[in-house]
């Protein structure tokens, strides 16, 4: 557990950038993504503090994936400000990319390459020092060391997802973005993933997850929010939430906000 359990290297504050609150890793204000009159995100604002686990729930088409794509620098926003670790999305995309890891329902793995080759490829893109050692450690931690020279094609979905976690952690990111990571996993694999995420959270990594899986999302989160039709309509610390009634609350909020537009 060495690699995963060690504290992530806390990013040095960006020089010359005034941080409103040094403790917040993600700062989003007035974020909008629109195409013509169709809005995927409308004026979203939120913050995620260092070491916090925020889960954003929402029905299909709420804008969850769009949000993740914007935060992970894959798609530019139409308006608003986003900064990650004090770096602005527009100006310092590569510095942000160095600090974030993404685990999605897609594994981002090449099936015609072996587990080790996949990690080596991504490691080279991040220009990581001492890559071979890093890869060995990570593979051992996700329990794939014995299979490291096997093609990913031969892996089960759960094994692929574990390798995908190793891929996301390869460059030791301080911020993790999770996009429906439970999709396609069986019961056992899901539980393993939850275990991993809990450990990552306990080791001061900042985590933002979007999902429609209420139970698992709520279990791990410090704070939850609900995104409906591109707006955040609910946000609360998970300690203030009655978990048995959350499902009802969730449906009420989704219902209310989809009717009146």
């Amino acid at each position: 557990m060495e690699q995963i359990c060690k504290q992530p290297t806390v990013a040095e504050p960006a020089s010359g950038v005034v941080q409103a609150e040094p403790d917040s890793v993600i700062q989003v204000s007035g974020l909008t993504k629109a195409f013509g009159h169709h809005h995927a995100l409308r004026q979203i604002s939120f913050e995620v503090r260092r070491g916090e686990f925020l889960t954003i729930f929402g029905p299909n088409g709420a804008g969850k994936t769009t949000l993740i794509r914007i935060l992970s620098t894959m798609t530019p926003p139409s308006g608003g400000d986003v900064s990650i670790d004090g770096f602005s999305l527009a100006d310092d995309a590569n510095k942000i990319r160095n600090r974030l890891g993404v685990i999605a329902h897609q594994t981002y793995l090449y099936e015609t390459l072996t587990a080790a080759e996949n990690l080596r490829f991504y490691g080279r893109l991040y220009d990581l020092p001492d890559l071979n050692n890093r890869i060995e450690k990570l593979l051992a931690e996700v329990g794939l060391r014995a299979r490291q020279n096997d093609l990913v094609r031969t892996f089960s979905r759960g094994m692929q997802q574990r390798l995908s976690i190793a891929r996301a952690l390869l460059h030791d990111p301080s911020l993790l973005l999770l996009d429906e990571p439970y999709t396609g996993l069986d019961q056992h694999a899901s539980e393993m993933l939850s275990g991993w995420l809990a450990r990552l959270r306990d080791n001061a990594r900042t985590i933002l997850m979007v999902t429609h899986d209420l139970e698992r999302g709520l279990d791990l989160a410090d704070r939850v929010a609900i995104l409906v039709k591109g707006k955040i309509v609910f946000s609360k610390a998970s300690s203030d939430i009655d978990k048995s009634k959350f499902q009802k609350t969730y449906y009420e909020f989704v219902e209310q906000n989809t009717r009146h537009t």
Binding site: H37, H38, K229
Partner: peptide, 13 residues
């Protein structure tokens, strides 16, 4: 046409 599509999209929920 776009306005109509947008209205339909809003009503689809």
């Amino acid at each position: 046409a776009i306005a109509v599509r947008e209205l339909k999209r809003q009503m689809a929920y």
